[in-house]
């Protein structure tokens, strides 16, 4: 039907008899901007890695753009969906440019990158406002800048679906907003499908159109207004919760509450 992300009866476990995800059945349409929320151990990162084809489900099928992600060649899969890890970790001090150019894994090492590839890398860095820093060493950047470099690399990868694992972790409010704004722009300019897995709920809620609550199963999936309901949230996160509405932008927000207080 659509060319987005489809999970058909997907189950996954890392160890025997310890299933992380049960029988996931859903589809996300092309061009969607979706936030996935859930408690620790809900299987959020696992879901993203399944969608990227990095993990192979024990049961069921995962399709992106109509293609079965774990049956097609890795290179092709990485051009359909780009998994963006939560932190940039490298044993070697690559420069920003070198790091972003890693998306060209198929090119032989003895030929330099052609002018078009170089221009594409600089364009991607410009989109995340990191072009001026392209000669800096990634290990010396701030967490926020590192996130932007990871994002730029995913853009160079050329995938139509971005799968972001905790894109806001370790970021202050300002940088978190900046990353979400960049994602929103990218999605619009390049017609991307953007999936964000996040523990931080309120900042993504100001941007995404669709919300999934995940707790080893899909608890709810739909527009934020329908999904962010008191009983569902309270049960999913197993905590007392206050749901409010920001009067200025009319967006929902949630605050956990101290039960002893």
């Amino acid at each position: 039907m659509d060319e987005g992300i489809e999970f058909h009866g997907v189950s996954f476990s890392y160890a025997q008899d310890m299933p992380v995800l049960h029988d996931l059945d859903f589809s996300i349409e092309k061009g969607a901007f979706i936030g996935i929320f859930g408690p620790n151990g809900a299987g959020k990162s696992t879901l993203l890695k399944l969608a990227a084809g990095i993990l192979r489900p024990q049961a069921g099928r995962v399709l992106v753009g109509g293609m079965p992600m774990h049956d097609i060649p890795r290179y092709q899969a990485a051009r359909l969906a780009a998994y963006v890890p939560p932190v940039l970790v490298t044993p070697f001090p690559y420069t920003v440019f070198e790091f972003a150019s890693m998306a060209y894994v198929d090119r032989p090492g003895w030929s330099g990158l052609d002018a078009k590839a170089k221009a594409d890398i600089m364009e991607a860095l410009r989109m995340v406002d990191m072009d001026a820093m392209h000669e800096r060493t990634v290990s010396n950047l701030s967490s926020g800048e590192q996130k932007l470099v990871l994002l730029a690399r995913a853009i160079v990868q050329g995938a139509s679906t971005l799968l972001l694992d905790e894109p806001l972790a370790n970021l202050d409010m300002n940088h978190a907003l900046q990353v979400m704004q960049t994602l929103a722009q990218l999605r619009q300019n390049r017609n991307l499908t953007v999936v964000c897995v996040s523990h931080e709920v309120n900042i993504p809620l100001q941007f995404v159109h669709t919300v999934m609550l995940l707790n080893q199963r899909v608890v709810a999936l739909g527009p934020a207004e329908d999904v962010m309901m008191y009983p569902t949230l309270k049960q999913t996160f197993d905590t007392e919760i206050y749901i409010g509405r920001n009067e200025l932008n009319n967006r929902l927000f949630i605050v956990p509450m101290n039960r002893q207080g």
């Binding site: 890695k49 990227a52 084809g53 990095i54 060649p73 890795r74 290179y75 092709q76 899969a77 990485a78 051009r79 780009a82 998994y83 963006v84 890890p85 970790v89 490298t90 044993p91 070697f92 890693m102 998306a103 894994v105 198929d106 690399r153 990868q157």
Partner: peptide, 14 residues
């Protein structure tokens, strides 16, 4: 050099 899963995410049959 960035790890198996990251290489896979970039399109390498790690």
């Amino acid at each position: 050099a960035l790890g198996r899963q990251e290489a896979m995410a970039l399109g390498v049959d790690a």
